[in-house]
Amino acid sequence: MAILVYAEHDNSSLKAETLKTVAAAQAMGGDIHLLVAGHNCGGVAEEAAKVNGVSKVLVADNAAYEHQLAENVSLLVKDLAGDYDAIIATALTTGKNFMPRVAALLDVAQISDIIGVESADTFVRPIYAGNAIATVQSLDAKKVITVRATAFDAVATDGSAEVVALDSATDAGISSHVSDELTESERPDLGAAPVVISGGRGMQNGDNFKLLDGIADKLGAAIGASRAAVDAGFVPNDMQVGQTGKIVAPDLYIAVGISGAIQHLAGMKDSKVIVAINKDPEAPIFQVADYGLVADLFEALPELEGKL
C-alpha cells in the first residue's frame, strides 16, 4: 500500500506535528511519501527528507502554493492521488481546510481527526467533543484521512529519503491571499509544547495573563486559555485550548483559574500530567487533575514562579 502524507509547514520549517502524522501512516503500514507544497520551501524539503519511515519526498515549489490555498493545493493532491491508496494530513488548520476538498474531488468520504489506527481501513476518532469515541470502517477504496497529531508519538528524524521536485502549478484562479496577521511569540507552539500553562476566566482580565509569563519562561511552556477567557476578550482566539480551539496533549498541563467545562477538557484531557489551580474546590477541573491546589491564583502564581 502506498501512502501520501501532506507535510505541514510555513515554507521555512517543517511542523513537528507532521512527525506524528507519519507515525499514524506507519500504523496503517505501507510505503510512505511526504508531499511538501509551498514556495521557496527548500529548507522544509531538506527537513522532510530526514523523517524516518519516509521513502520519498515530493516537492511542489511554486508561487501557486505559497499560502497553501485550498483551491490550489486540493488540485495538486488530486492529481497525485492516483498513485496512492491513502492520503493523510494533520488535522491542523491547513489540513482541515483543503483535505475535504480533496476527498470530494476524488468522490470519497473523509475520516477526520483520527486518534487510533485499528487496521488499514478501520480508525478510531472522537465524536461529540470527545465525549464518545467511535470506531469507523471506511468502505472507500482510497482513504482520505486527517490525524489528530497529539494521539501519536513522533517518528525520529535521522532518515534520508529521496527528494523529487514536481513540476506542478495548479492555480485554480478563484482565490487569492490578501494578508496574514500572525501572533508573534518567542514561546513554543501550543500544539507542540512539552508544557502548557493556561488561564481561564479566573484570570479576570488580559493583563493578569502576564502572571503566567514568568512561569512559562522557566518551564519553556506555551501559554493557552479557556474559551471563557477568549470569549471575555482577555486573549486572542489562537490561544484557545478546547474542542473549538486547539487540542493539546503536553507532558505537563497547568490549568489556572479554569473551571473545567466539557469543551475545555476535550482539548487537554490527554495531557500526561494535569495540574489545576483554582480557588473553587468544587470546580470540575479537579476531577481530571493529577495534582489539584485549591488556592487564590493571584497568590499562588507568584509563589510558583519563585519556586521553580
Binding site: T135, L139, F286, Q287, L293
Partner: peptide, 21 residues
C-alpha cells in the same frame, strides 16, 4: 463507512490535592 462501535472515553480519575506550592 460503517460505524463499528461507539465507546465512552477513557475516564481520567482525580488525583491528589496538594496543600502548598
Amino acid at each position: 463507512s460503517t460505524l463499528v462501535k461507539v465507546a465512552p472515553p477513557a475516564e481520567r480519575s482525580a488525583g491528589v490535592t496538594v496543600e502548598t506550592i
